[in-house]
């Protein structure tokens, strides 16, 4: 039997997780309704995999838009294997975005982390969006990850250069979002904004979502808490070998989730996100 097929008998989540699920599903359906040309980013991490799962919930087993993986070429190899396996089993329309020019010119993190993230992730994404003419991109960012994301909208406009004007964000109330916009701009849709790290894990456990095993301690006393490129993502010390262990660990910890992500140092994320980073 495939590890990707949920086996537990179940009739849906309840309580707080159900509320989060209902809100995310509502947002996904609004996005699909309002934008004809949209895509969803999938990094194979826990958040965007939960997002993908929620899309299958929202559309009753289907994912009616392409999934885009912004591939920096520096991802941890297991992530690529997991990506291709899930895509095949779930019948996903998976597209790979890559800034080939930057890679051909030798772009890597030793040239500067913000420089590298901007070239391979921000620009890799922006060029792909522009080339394919997407008017909306769905992303799995969460408000509790770091400060600039705490200020995001569910539907967040990007200008002609793909940049985020955080000073002038649209009002968002009563489930009504910004869905019309000038030609040449696009909207970032953030259905997971209200989820916290622990919610994501509790949901993965409740729904039995297949998750990449890099998140677990596989015997060496470490695990990844947040996944990115191999050179800039560091494992944390942890004994957590199961979902229950991770959830218990998160209840105790006071260390920030992204402390193992090098680009967050100093004001890295603020600069990156203003320019259109995810």
């Amino acid at each position: 039997m495939s590890v990707l097929t949920p086996t537990a008998a179940r009739s849906g989540v309840a309580g707080h997780l159900r509320q989060l699920e209902d809100q995310s599903v509502y947002i996904l359906r609004e996005a699909y309704r309002h934008f004809d040309n949209l895509c969803m980013l999938w990094s194979m991490g826990k958040d965007s995999t939960v997002l993908l799962w929620l899309a299958r919930k929202a559309f009753f087993g289907h994912v009616p838009f392409p999934l885009v993986h912004v591939d920096t070429s520096y991802k941890i190899p297991e992530m690529i294997a997991y990506r291709d396996r899930v895509a095949r089993e779930w019948g996903l329309n998976l597209l790979i975005a890559q800034n080939k020019d930057a890679l051909a010119n030798g772009m890597n993190h030793t040239l500067g982390r913000v420089v590298c993230c901007t070239a391979l992730k921000t620009n890799g994404l922006k060029d792909f969006v522009a080339e394919r003419g997407y008017t909306a991109v769905i992303l799995g960012i969460r408000a509790d990850e770091e400060g600039t994301r705490a200020k995001e909208r569910y539907f967040s406009p990007r200008d002609h250069h793909g940049e985020w004007d955080f000073r002038d964000q649209p009002p968002e109330l009563w489930g009504q979002f910004k869905t019309s916009f000038p030609e040449g701009t696009h909207i970032r849709v953030h259905p997971l904004l209200d989820w916290r790290e622990i919610d994501v894990w509790e949901y993965i456990r409740a729904e039995n979502i297949p998750i990449i095993d890099l998140y677990f301690n596989r015997g060496d006393g470490t695990r990844y808490r947040s996944l990115g490129c191999a050179p800039c993502t560091f494992a944390i010390r942890s004994t957590a070998k199961s979902l229950d262990d991770i959830i218990e660990e998160l209840r105790q910890t006071t260390v920030a989730e992204r402390s193992g992500r090098a680009q967050d140092e100093g004001r890295g994320m603020e600069v990156l996100r203003k320019d259109g980073y995810m």
Binding site: A143, D144, G147, T148, A150, K151, F166, R167, Q169, L193, D194, R196, R267, E270
Partner: peptide, 19 residues
């Protein structure tokens, strides 16, 4: 007050959500 600008002006520019 995450944004640099907020710290410089001493005002909160946008709604922040914390848990």
């Amino acid at each position: 007050d995450t944004f640099l600008e907020e710290q410089e002006q001493g005002i909160t520019i946008d709604t922040a959500r914390t848990f």
